[in-house]
Structures are given as structure tokens and as C-alpha cells.
Amino acid sequence: MDRTERFYKIEKLLRQRKLASFAALQAELEVSRSTLKRDLDYLRTRLNAPIEWNREAGGYRFAETAGLADLAHELPGLWFSSSEIHALLTMQHLLAGLDTGGLLTPHVAPLMDRLNALLGSTNNDAQEVRRRVRIIALANRPARPGHFQTVGSALLQRKRLGITYSARGSGQVTEREVSPLRLVHYRENWYLDAWCHLRRGLRNFALDAISQAHLLERPAKEVNDATLDETFAPSYGIFSGGPVQWAHLHFTPERARWVAHEQWHPQQQGQLQADGSYLLRLPYADHRELVMDILKHGAHCEVLGPGSLRQAVGDEVGKMGEKYS
């Protein structure tokens, strides 16, 4: 940990704990007494941090008399970790896409200002960070802003929704009454996990496929988190429900250099082979999304099992062959 990182960690600890002893700071930073003394002195005398020693409480804290201007002192520029910069820019991307100039703008604008403050500093303002670092969204299907707000309201108020839903797989349009349970952002798109009163079971709905949505006064049916996780979490991708099977995939040495570092599922099991190839096992309940990801690798991925998945991939390859022959 370099000195700049230590400065930020000292500030974070003091803001979180309100009071921190010298021993506690030293243990968190894993530095010598002399190094910590120099850091505290530098923060106070060179960077004007309002840090004081409270003899009665036996620890360091920010001065209680410090105004907002004092607490807004500038620390030297610190670059973000990959997860931090991705989180901040992704949040901006999501907020900007929710409702440009529409109903949510008054609520979104303050959050955007806070994110800009986090991204910016004396050495690099938020606009420059966004210009130099990009989060690229692929296959994004925007949900209607009004519907997003209606779904969100029903979700938090625990009310049922009446929706008109267009199932892309079959092209069928149905009127449904659903109890919203979770909003899920997956692969750049929004989905709603809900209890469908028409089908009398848990279902997943793409928000962009909802053409009409209105709040109902009837209370939503509650489903506990354990049941939701059991239904939606174990299987591969957004298509869930039904018996779980395990896919066995074999990748060539060339493609293994990428796939061995990817996470396809939290419960996946992977093993590099002596020849450099890679064996990947992962659970799935519905093969549709998994087949699409397998086909992206072409001849570099072989489905070893189960037979039904191998057949599904073979059928898709056959259709492609007929189309392009």
C-alpha cells in the first residue's frame, strides 16, 4: 500500500468509526509507528485535514468544529481499482438510461451529481474520466421509463401489477396479473422475477417486453428469498426453473486461454488439461441461453454432455448449415 492509499484509508476509517486509536490505525494500515505519525502529520499540516487527537477518548477523530469546507479538503489524486471504476461508471450508465428528461429526472439528477463528485478530483474531473474510460453496453433493450417506475413502485409497495406481456419465444401476447418480487439487471437488460397468478408459479419477465403496466390495489403474494434463490439462482442464465442438469463442455487450448478465466456460473467447476484444453461443468435448467454462449465459440467448444444439450447445439448448427449452404 503506497502513501496515497494510506491517506484515503485513514480518512475512511475516521469517517466510519468516528474515533480510532493509534493502535487501531496502525493495525489496519500495517505500518510502523513512525510511518503512521508521518502520515497523520502530513494530512494535518500539508493537506489541511481537520484531524485531532482526543485525549479523553484516547483516539483520533475529525474535529467537531470542522465545517463542510474543512471536511472537503483535497487529497492527492488516486486512481480507482477496476471494480471501483466499473461500479461508478456503470451506475452512471444505468441512471442516464433510466429516464432521460422524463419522470425520473428530478430523482436521478442528485445521484448523478454525487457520482460526478466521486469521480472527479483536482487532477481529473468527471468529464475527463468518462471520456477516457468507457463502459460499452451490448444488446441493450431499453425498458419504457413509465413502466420501469410503475414496476418499481409496485415492487416496493408490495402491490400486484397488471401487465400486457409479449413472449418473444412464442410471439404470444397475454394479459397477466403478477406479484413483483425482484428486479434483476442482467447482461444490460432489466428483468422482473415475479409470481404469475395466471400460470400459478414463479416466472421471469423482460421489462422491455411489457407493453402495458398498471398498479393494482391487491397486495402482492409473498415468496421467501430461499424459494426465489432455489428457483432462479442454481441454473444458468436468466432462463430458470425446472430440473437442473450439468453441462460438460470441452474447450480447445486456444480458447481455453480465455474461458479458464471467465465465470459462467457461480457454481461452475473448471479444470485445465495436460494438453492445454479446458473442461468446464456448470448447472442449467433451460438450454436456450447456454446454447447461444456455446455457439459463440464455434468449433472450439465441444459439448460432452448431457445428450439433450449436445443435440440442441447440433440442431442449431444444422439450421445454420442449411441457411448458409
Rank of each mutant, 00 (worst) to 15 (best):
61 R>Q: 12
323 K>G: 15
263 Q>I: 12
299 A>T: 03
273 Q>H: 10
243 P>T: 00
269 Q>S: 09
183 L>I: 13
261 H>C: 08
172 Q>R: 10
193 D>Q: 11
16 Q>K: 13
10 I>L: 04
286 D>K: 15
237 G>Y: 06
91 M>E: 02
37 K>I: 12
58 G>P: 03
310 R>S: 12
1 M>H: 12
243 P>F: 01
325 S>W: 13
277 S>Y: 07
82 S>M: 10
34 S>L: 12
255 R>L: 13
313 V>D: 12
254 E>L: 13
302 E>Y: 04
184 V>M: 02
196 C>A: 01
285 A>N: 01
46 R>K: 14
244 V>E: 08
150 T>P: 01
143 A>Q: 06
300 H>E: 10
204 N>H: 15
182 R>I: 10
246 W>C: 07
255 R>H: 15
29 L>Y: 04
97 G>C: 14
103 L>C: 09
304 L>K: 09
222 E>P: 06
191 Y>G: 13
279 L>Q: 13
40 L>V: 06
293 D>M: 11
50 P>Q: 03
188 E>Y: 03
84 E>F: 09
53 W>Q: 04
181 L>P: 14
296 K>L: 09
203 R>I: 13
23 A>H: 10
307 G>A: 15
227 T>D: 07
323 K>I: 12
270 G>N: 12
102 G>T: 04
258 W>T: 02
101 G>V: 09
137 A>W: 05
193 D>M: 12
125 D>W: 06
75 L>N: 06
315 D>N: 08
108 V>P: 05
235 S>T: 15
26 Q>E: 08
181 L>Q: 03
253 P>T: 04
320 M>L: 14
204 N>W: 08
27 A>P: 04
86 H>P: 00
310 R>I: 03
52 E>M: 02
233 A>Q: 00
125 D>R: 07
79 W>Y: 12
30 E>A: 15
300 H>K: 11
193 D>S: 12
155 L>Y: 13
47 L>N: 00
320 M>Y: 13
249 L>W: 04
156 L>V: 03
8 Y>W: 09
322 E>D: 09
6 R>F: 11
5 E>Y: 10
5 E>P: 02
